[in-house]
């Protein structure tokens, strides 16, 4: 018995040695999530899942932390850098300033940020072509609508969400020039991302005015839209993650923003040792944005609509259609 225990100790020591040896070789990745946290069923969760997938497939050393307040981003990023993490990813534009400052202080570490462009020789910026995906769901909305009226609900009224709105309106008008688009925003502060009752109120009012499809880009507030759609027997469109499953039959589709893919690919490039600085754009062409089709929305999203939308998608990728971009609105005028 004693002998057995001795063997076990030796074995486990050996295993521990092996374990630490492989951990030393593994890439160390730190992920700093925004205040929404890893269970927001939307943006942060997508980033978290992308990093978990990378951990599973590449065996890296991953640490995920959530910020407690806006002043916490910088210390969290800095702690990762001080502890020798190779790649440090900030999720959300709120971290832009912190990433800029800390990346300059630690030039031998790699940094990455989602949804903001940060200059720097060691910073990768992940940007999404939200207007392209929104254009497609706008077309889907207008093609499905029987009243030629569709709605848009934005979360916080900021340029990022205006970009969704502009693409959505353009897509709807492309397939039906006479379509009416009713747009509302939930608020001007960060609480707009987590206010389902207000989203529901806006959705009900849009449905009452005759809209029969409403798209919301509002984070956790989207849940209010889905409730309203179910109550009024109308259709809703989800955002960021695939939200079709939340109310099957009432969610027409979801505008996917593949933060998970972007985070995964950034980590993969870093683990191959060839993460280049600069901005990487994720659009329709590289499946960074898309619309969602699965068993939950098969019945509401018709073949006819799909066919037309896939033509539009191919034309955008081929460069035959240029989707209006809110970020470039001033350059044009």
């Amino acid at each position: 018995m004693r002998n057995l225990t001795g063997k076990f100790v030796v074995l486990s020591l050996f295993a521990a040695l092996l374990g630490s040896a492989s951990a030393q070789a593994a890439l160390k990745v730190g992920l700093v999530l925004d205040r929404g946290g890893k269970d927001d069923k939307s943006f942060n969760e997508a980033a978290y899942k992308g990093s978990l997938r990378a951990q599973k497939e590449m065996g890296l050393e991953l640490k995920v932390v959530e910020a407690t307040d806006t002043n916490a981003f910088e210390p969290l990023l800095r702690t990762f850098a001080q502890r020798g993490y190779d790649l440090i990813i900030g999720v959300g534009f709120a971290q832009a300033e912190a990433v800029k400052k800390v990346s300059a202080q630690f030039p031998d570490r790699k940094f990455a940020i989602v949804d903001s462009e940060v200059p720097g020789a060691n910073v990768r910026s992940m940007m999404f072509e939200e207007h392209e995906g929104s254009y497609l769901v706008g077309a889907i909305a207008a093609l499905t609508s029987k009243t030629a009226k569709v709605g848009f609900i934005g979360g916080m009224d900021i340029p990022l969400i205006r970009r969704f709105q502009m693409g959505y309106e353009a897509g709807a008008r492309k397939v039906n020039p006479k379509v009416e688009v009713e747009s509302n925003y939930i608020g001007v502060t960060a609480s707009a991302w987590n206010n389902p009752p207000k989203a529901k109120e806006l959705a009900v009012s849009q449905y009452n005015k005759g809209a029969d499809v409403v798209f919301a880009a509002a984070g956790a507030s989207n849940l209010g839209l889905f409730d309203a759609a179910e109550e009024r027997k109308k259709l809703a469109i989800g955002v960021d993650s695939n939200q079709n499953w939340i109310k099957p039959g009432f969610v027409l589709t979801s505008m996917l923003k593949r933060v998970d893919v972007a985070v995964f690919e950034t980590i993969r490039e870093a683990s191959g040792g060839k993460l280049e600085a600069g901005t990487r754009r994720y659009g329709l062409a590289n499946e960074g944005v898309d619309y969602a089709l699965d068993s939950f929305n098969q019945k509401v999203l018709t073949e006819d609509v799909l066919k037309k939308v896939n033509v539009l998608k191919a034309e955008i990728i081929a460069g035959k259609i240029t989707v209006p971009d809110y970020y470039k609105r001033n350059a044009k005028n």
Binding site: F93, A94, M156, I158
Partner: peptide, 17 residues
């Protein structure tokens, strides 16, 4: 404070409120 910060003196260089 939301009104004053975002309508009267918003930061044009940032999407943060």
């Amino acid at each position: 404070s939301s009104y004053v910060a975002l309508y009267l003196f918003p930061n044009p260089d940032s999407q943060n409120p």
